[in-house]
Design a protein around this nucleic acid. Structure first.
Lengths: 348, 348
DNA sequence: TTGTAAGCGTTATCAC
DNA sequence: GTGATAACGCTTACAA
């Protein structure tokens, strides 16, 4: 039995005032004087009646839905095994709440990008977008920002000046691979976290190349494989690397999840980390710490990334001027046991 | 530069009809005759102008927000490492889309339950709720359903007749533990997936007890520990189990993530799975397959659970009669290598 | 300090 | 078949 909705008019009647006053009091409108007594009467009445403003009506008139859209540009089966997502989700929800807003989550598959963005934005369902894992080939994104729609990327698109929160993927990967180089490794394989259309994947690969270059190690395409976020892709690619007969003593796997899958393939070949293969991951998921051996990996400040993204978006929504359109957070290498010690002797 | 919103009036003008007609055509209202030519003019005009109906206006007048709320009743740091969540998220979003709706995701912390539900529901922000991981002590939930608000649980609350989609946690755990018993284990430890206020945790523990009972093995409290969703809790509890000096040859860990953490503690004590400890998990996350050794675990049909939950909720929203308020999906044991073979010899 | 009234963009109920 | 017109519940000039 659904009771009739309580509207602001009910509150107004109960408090013996007009709807205007109710609105003024409840929204704590600044620059308006309301006597303590009326204010109290209104608040008490609202409380008494368990009044909650109708979101749709409010959104319609104020054209603010109080909703932030988290958009994932991934085909849906890729998110199923994305632990990084839960980490940022956590941070996102918490911070969205702090601003009295809520989070709508949506997947936009590459094929339907254009219409999907359009509908989300034009329908005014949401006030702003947080776009996770942008892709190079996302044309609709450009249209979105051209339109002036409040958008913050978690990640970057090279050559574009979008609002974004990110880490320096290139430098971070470079640091990770240099760690391997420093241990004496010369044949270092690489498995990306995702296809290179995802900017983060491309940058991490670039960091790998940069580190090799710095160490005067020639880049060898046969040592590179492409993951797709999932554990299984890590397994397959590492398996494939071994089957290919290429020789390597270390691997940089640009995602902890993918690294976990890769480790299984190493084991399956009767080898072990770090004895036969030094491995460095990326993300520093809780998982990494509990792997066998604990994975040396690049720490990504997931919660902070989320917090900053929301903060930036809220500022944009409030029309505040932002001095910097990009916020780059720090990463660091967490050295655990997956790289062993200095590599003994030279090795092809 | 945000262009002025295109409204249905613009479309009406462009097509040379009234707003009513536009609405009729675009919403494909049944039982109304509209000439092919007008219909086409309207559709073309809408397409031309890239018209997208305003969600708030539509929600206001139709009192349907076209939004499903996924509510997590967990303190926020617990969701950060919940891989199961990403799995259902995947299924949820996909199926919600199939019905032209979207997903709002929210965390409701135990302390603020009452008000949080109330606000979500009364504000009419969402049309229905999918509640993941219900807790025994959720009083607000009762109020919600009493109110007739469309609610579907992913999980159950014993003794309550809520709409729900779930697996038979008790039977599944019983099956898992019986597997261990069948291998000759008598001292079987248990680490729950979560505190017992979460119904699934309580049921899984009950299944453990039932299996012991069936095998005439006395229940020993000193073999039981309580996890809290996280890898780290698994680690801590297993560590604690060893430190306590209790003797056990097998462990039922009611969550793969917790099991992964627990495995690390086993290793840290210089022992290994399955040689020194047989282990069975629960959930069958992708993770389980890539663990060392691959984890024997109870398969939970995550995607299907999500699909059924949405399906049920949509039916409720459409006012269709449901013959059964609960849908219980099948689980099965996935036997991998974490239990080894028959336990040799009797053991205390 | 508070009330009146207009309007947000739809859908839905009527007439025509 | 199609078009006025009235809600939906709220915010916000503007008036009192």
């Amino acid at each position: 039995m659904v009771a009739r909705r309580v509207t602001s008019l009910d509150v107004a009647k109960a408090a013996g005032v007009s709807r205007t006053t109710v609105s003024l009091v409840l929204n704590e409108v600044q620059g308006i004087q309301i006597s303590e007594s009326t204010r109290h009467r209104v608040i008490d009445a609202a409380h008494e009646l368990e009044y909650v403003p109708n979101a749709a009506a409010r959104a319609l008139v104020s054209s603010r839905a109080q909703l932030i859209g988290l958009v994932l540009t991934r085909s849906t089966h890729h998110i199923a095994s994305d632990s990084f997502l839960t980490q940022i989700l956590d941070g996102l929800i918490e911070n969205v709440h702090a601003h009295g807003m809520r989070l709508l989550i949506d997947i936009i598959e590459p094929e339907h990008q254009k219409e999907a963005y359009l509908e989300l934005v034009r329908s005014k369902h949401i006030d702003g977008i947080i776009l996770s894992g942008p892709r190079m080939d996302d044309e609709a994104l450009q249209a979105l920002t051209d339109d002036g729609f409040p958008t913050v990327l978690m990640g970057q698109v090279p050559g574009k000046n979008y609002y974004c929160v990110d880490v320096d993927n290139l430098a971070a990967s470079q640091m990770a691979v240099s760690h391997l180089v420093g241990l004496g490794h010369k044949r270092i394989a690489c498995i990306t976290n995702a296809p290179l259309t995802y900017t983060a994947a491309a940058e991490r690969l670039a960091g790998y190349r940069k580190a090799l270059e710095d160490a005067h190690i020639p880049y060898d395409e046969s040592l590179v494989r492409y993951g797709d976020f999932s554990l299984s892709s890590g397994y397959k690619q590492m398996y494939n690397l071994y089957e290919s007969g290429t020789c390597f003593t270390a691997a940089f796997v640009a995602s902890d999840e993918v690294a976990m899958g890769a480790t299984a393939a190493v084991r399956e070949h009767g080898l072990s980390v770090p004895k036969d293969l030094a491995m460095v991951g990326f993300d520093d998921l809780p998982l990494a710490y509990y792997m066998d051996p604990p994975l040396t990996t690049v720490h990504l400040p997931a919660i902070d990334l989320a917090r900053q993204a929301i903060d930036m978006l809220i500022r944009i929504l409030k029309g505040k001027h932002l001095t910097k359109k990009q916020r780059i957070l720090d990463t660091y290498l967490v050295v655990r046991q997956s790289c062993g010690t200095q590599l003994k002797g030279g090795m092809a």
